[in-house]
Amino acid sequence: MRIVHAVRSDGFAGVERHVARLARAQAHHGDDVTVVGGAADDMRRELDGVRHLEARTVPEVARRLAGHGRGADVVHVHMTAAEIAAGLVPWARHRPAVVATRHFAAPRGSGRTGPFVARLARHAVQAQIAVSRYVADHVDGPTTVVYPGVDVAPSTAEQERVVLVLQRLEPEKATDVALRAVASSGMLHHGWRLQVAGTGSQAAELAALADRLGLRAELLGHRADVDELLGSAGILLAPCPVEGLGLSVLEAMAHALPVVAADAGGHTELLAGLDDRALFPPGDAATAGDRLRALAADDAGRAAYGRAAAARQRARYTLAAQVAGTADVYEELL
């Protein structure tokens, strides 16, 4: 099958990583795959030989699709801007099936132009995939849930006494809750370290908050070695209350890394029932700190939680399962 993925982006965060991993897995499965959009160096590293074309704007995505999508069986778009781009292409005789993955738990369009944007985005889309049941329940239109997968080789590194926060540093991610939770836990006074990997508009503000809280936070910025960070950390802290799924949480599970996460959105689907200390009420830094402190003091419990998380990931959230579920959506249209 010939597949073209498109995302209007010059960055590399959760959505772009999702696109790159799915595209690479489909190519390994035998499909002819092209990816449009995303930060060139990061995408090409993750794609490992799969064809990549840069596209930073909606018109650029539309031009790429007009040139490379006409002979495709499926054009698979990610986020509203790429949906709009697909709708701008005059497909002529050979019109590919257009599938959209919904990554966020919200209807299309916002603000005064929202209804127009939503209509324009929906125009080209023939089927939708949601990354979680939570997302499917909050988007517009019929949607099939296909969970993302990860296939991560078990790390040979020894887990260190590190609390890792791995996310964009934007307001909706609630990184400030993570800093307050670590401060509340007191664990940095008992040999633990805090690492924050990611970039965003709140970087300076969060550095100032860490200083006010007396935290020796290692603000790592953008990192390409995400697997290495996850493989050597002791706990992942995921405070975002609106994650459609939580790719970093899923990756942590693959590394047998215990997670303390906001009990909301996709986090709940991934972690519920694994450990009593896995989830905390969104925004509640004090309770999150309690969860962290309890896990930090329980070496055997952390290891058991990590093994249970890894077993769940390998049973439910593999790239093979994602490729198969995505192919089912394609084939129903074709």
Rank of each mutant, 00 (worst) to 15 (best):
V4D: 01
R17K: 10
A25S: 15
A25H: 03
Q26W: 03
V35F: 01
A39E: 15
H52M: 08
T57H: 01
E60T: 10
L65G: 01
A66Y: 04
A66M: 07
A72S: 13
V74P: 00
H76Q: 14
M79Y: 11
T80K: 03
A86D: 08
R93N: 12
V98M: 00
A100F: 04
A106Y: 04
P107I: 10
S110T: 09
R119L: 10
H123L: 11
H123Q: 14
V125N: 03
V125Y: 03
Q128W: 02
I129V: 15
I129P: 00
V131F: 01
A136G: 02
D137W: 01
V139A: 06
T144R: 04
Y147H: 14
A153I: 11
A157I: 02
V162Y: 05
V165E: 08
Q167Y: 04
R168F: 09
L169H: 05
E172G: 13
T175E: 07
D176P: 09
A178W: 03
A178L: 11
A183T: 09
L188T: 14
H189P: 07
H189E: 15
G191M: 13
L194E: 08
E205M: 11
A207Q: 15
L209H: 02
R212V: 10
L213R: 06
L215H: 05
A217V: 06
E218W: 02
L219N: 04
L220R: 13
G221T: 12
A224K: 13
L230N: 00
G234W: 01
A238R: 00
C240Y: 05
V242L: 11
E243Y: 04
L245F: 04
L247Q: 03
M253G: 08
P258C: 11
V259L: 13
G265C: 12
T268R: 14
L271W: 02
L271P: 00
D276A: 15
R277C: 08
R277V: 08
P281G: 14
G289C: 06
Y305V: 09
A308F: 02
A311F: 02
R314A: 11
R316N: 10
A320R: 13
A324G: 11
A327P: 02
